[in-house]
Design a protein around this nucleic acid. Structure first.
Lengths: 340, 340
DNA sequence: TGAAATAGCCAAAGCGCTTTGGAAGACTCT
DNA sequence: AGAGTCTTCCAAAGCGCTTTGGCTATTTCA
């Protein structure tokens, strides 16, 4: 059942039927009702390919997925996706993943924009002065950045959490508990979130006249193994830290294992606070010593990004609005006063 | 730059240019070269929306993503996706994720097929007699099942690993080591992979005149917490098992924690073998006691599924070919002879 | 009451590609 | 030389929608 047939059986023109269905004003309400009715009764659904050719709108949102033998997709992605899906489902929005060589994403961005494959895109895990952000900005497709890019030289719409504030609070708590030597096990420090977290820790330390020693901060891909290694290195050096802030729950697994291997205990010998993106399958309260965390649901962020993308597509949102979510600090058993 | 313009500047008809570009035989090789050349020089890329309207082919593969407030996407998904992306990138295939109400995926399958949004789909984590498989089979869209569905009453193309064989081997090893009371901490037993794994364990036990007691098998969503709970329950009962086979590395984290909480040790008091889908961020050799595993890269499976889908789309593969991959049994420190 | 405005509808022209149904010329064969 | 066969190209008809530009009544207003 296509528009032509529907129009014919209603003894109306395609124009009128199309307009009736799409809510244009120049059609009699009585007629519109008849059309709507017949459309529903016959299960008419406009052909998206045709609509797309005519309008250039696809009803999809896009994401360029960096891939490659050496590239691992972050497990956070799946949680973000859950949230995105929650919203998208309710609005019949589909998500197009366009895999791209991690070292050349530009080609793919240009392709999906030129082909008008998607109505909007989002960008995640941005770096400072991220080229992708600059690119989509000039390409003129609606977009939202999940996270922030600094020093871009222009404004853009984003959704981020207050990473600096979160780690500032975490560090402040540790300092109040008497810790003087803090360490930070961070994610890849080319990414803005890691930079912000480090900044938060430094700011808290500075407020008490302390500093974050070079040997007390490491920046690694967030795996259990890297958490382990970093912790071993930190704790086996002179002037080992008495407290660690850690950028992910997965790395925290490694931290805990290292501490145990060294015959130390949490929080007796080491206090630990990690960032929790809220995975359903790994919860900080279930660590052998319940883990204190800075918590923010990445899933909710996914839903919100989808919502804002939809708003941008339909013109309800515009301009370079940034949105920063506060982060909860949840104190559990893994922190205690500094050892004497 | 569209076809019309290109044709005009070559002083050829659209027909000829189109055919030259798409490799049809009825065009002079000399002419074809001229056309190809001009196309490249002017950066001509056929408009996919138009091509799609004309041919009904979209150049995309689809996946219906079950979502909902109570639905968590499996973290395995992201690894599978990595593999899929690896292949898809090299072939300019995009992946469309269509979020659907987990309880009504049929509507979404019908929509994407009716709308011809994708050229092929894959289905993952099937159940026995899975309705999705029956549905896409009747809808007539090319598809591949990742995993297997049993008792469907028809054949279909799939890619699966030998779950039964893997867990049979794992159980056999444990039995050879003198274990008589095995337990299985399994995934959701509505899914075929879980059924197969249980079958493998039972078969190994039966071969030695043993059985898997009802109280020695549990079927849960694969989270750390559920692994912990299951293990507590298993080990705190009379006739506690001396060895556990576990369906995921994430649950194994919980198993290890429970064992430790109970003041027991691995492998002294309990032997443990888990299935490893090969996550980059959590490796069995890095468990406090290196974990024995049945191993199969879900990422490679993703790449293979993409490859076969592409073959099906282009007609190179057809019929109900099933493909079952063997699984490695990797023995590490977490298994030992049964305690006396 | 006549001109102007408005409401409601339609025919037809796109959107940019593929594909059908020729047609003209070159070539082969008897 | 005439009939048949290739080879190589083209005009035009889709694919199914949206949108432009008009056209005809009906209403509004001075």
């Amino acid at each position: 059942m296509n528009l032509k047939q529907l129009a014919h059986m209603l003894a109306l023109s395609q124009t009128t039927v199309s307009r009736a269905l799409n809510g244009y004003p120049e059609v009699n309400e009585e007629t519109r009702r008849r059309v709507m009715d017949a459309a529903k009764r016959h299960g008419y659904r406009p052909n998206p390919s045709a609509r797309r050719l005519a309008t250039g709108k696809s009803g999809m949102i896009g994401y360029v997925l960096p891939t490659g033998a050496a590239v691992d997709i972050d497990p956070h992605f799946v949680e973000f996706l859950s949230g995105l899906g929650d919203y998208a489902r309710a609005h019949e929005l589909d998500l197009v993943l366009s895999p791209a060589d991690a070292d050349d994403q530009e080609t793919t961005y240009r392709r999906i924009v030129a082909n008008r494959q998607v109505d909007a895109v989002y960008i995640s895990s941005p770096w400072p002065a991220d080229r992708r952000v600059a690119l989509v900005n000039t390409l003129g497709i609606p977009f939202i950045v999940h996270g922030r890019s600094e020093d871009s030289g222009f404004d853009y719409p984003y959704l981020d959490i207050d990473n600096e504030g979160a780690f500032h609070e975490a560090a402040r708590l540790l300092i109040q508990l008497g810790h003087r030597r803090l360490a930070l096990i961070n994610g890849d420090d080319r990414e803005t979130f890691a930079i912000h977290r480090e900044r938060g820790v430094r700011r808290a330390l500075a407020a008490s006249g302390l500093t974050l020693g070079d040997r007390h901060v490491c920046s690694v891909v967030m795996t259990e193994e890297n958490g382990y290694r970093a912790t071993r290195r930190l704790l086996e050096q002179d002037g080992a830290p008495t407290a660690i802030a850690c950028s992910s729950l997965i790395m925290a697994l490694g931290v805990v294992r290292a501490v145990r291997d060294l015959g130390l205990t949490i929080p007796g010998d080491l206090s630990l606070i990690a960032h929790d993106d809220v995975f359903p399958w790994l919860r900080p309260e279930n660590f052998s010593v319940p883990l204190s965390t800075t918590r923010s649901s990445i899933r909710l962020a996914g839903a919100r990004v989808a919502e804002r993308l939809a708003a941008r597509i339909s013109g309800l949102e515009e301009g370079a609005r940034g949105e920063v979510w506060p982060v909860d600090l949840v104190v559990r058993g893994s922190v205690a006063g500094a050892p004497v």
